[in-house]
Amino acid sequence: MRIVVEHLSYTYQPRTPFAVKALDDVTLTIEEGEFFGVIGHTGSGKSTFVQHLNGLIRLPSSLKRQKKIKPKKGCLPPPPPVLKVGDFDLGDKKTDFRALRKSVGMVFQYPEYQLFAETVKEDVAFGLKNFSEGKPDPRQTEEAVREALSIVGLDYDEIADKSPFDLSGGQKRRVAIAGVIVTRPEVLVLDEPAAGLDPLGKREIMQLLHRIHGSWCKTIVIVSHDMDEIAENCTRAAVFSEGKLVCVLPPSELFRDAGRLTDLGLDIPLTAKLVLALRERGVEIDCNFRTEDFVAAVLARKGGAS
């Protein structure tokens, strides 16, 4: 499913002294099959942006929009916002948002805090139950839960009947992710899925995303603060700052011009820092900023030189 966003704006607490423009005229397209990164500071609008993707934040209906915005004389009225995920038109009130949410899974920050059921299997099956028409078949449900748990690296037989609250932090996080992917969403959106985990936990989360990406899960959209993570994993990344979209580029180009990010107070990956430091020392390394690629490029230079 292709995600098309045009002229998307959003204001929290509009027309009050506390009004905050969280998104300002954002236009971008995410192609099917991408591993798409979203970066920016806290408060840059990136979380607001991703919450639009499965209709948790709705576009204002077109009628209301016309009433609210009165074009000034000599000014063109602002173009209407467009938000489409595959065939779902999120600007259309008649859109089936439940069906949309089934296709667009959303993993929030610290998802383990949304666990609620008495057993792991009940919790993981929650989405399945909600999205199925009528009563779900228990055998199919068990199969789906078993598979979701195995994708996140947990053993159904060992864990299914335990209380989710008796698990370790890392396990809870994985159960929560299983509870989202159990419905096999075509698009998976994750808001800092690795936040607060130890290095091992982080690595496991990224590995599991790569495991499902390309099978039933066609597109992954990931919000992250970790530039190394973006450089290693993403096909392209969008940079947000103060509600505006700064650019959408593949990491190989995004991190080439380090100033663009550092001017916004954002970090760059370690490989980009090394490339810069080497340039100062008169050595040009051309790479796409993945660690593996950087090492290969340096070694190739070494090989070519000797």
């Binding site: 919450q51 499965n54 948790l56 439940r98 949410r101 089934k102 899974g105 959303m106 929030f108 920050q109 998802p111 805090y113 949304q114 929650f126 989405g127 139950k129 909600n130 999205f131 509870g179 989202v180 419905t183």
Partner: peptide, 16 residues
């Protein structure tokens, strides 16, 4: 804020 976040998370899992 937390209530809002949990509510959204469960909505995303199809809760009505």
């Amino acid at each position: 804020e937390e209530t809002e976040r949990i509510k959204n998370a469960q909505k995303a899992r199809g809760a009505n």
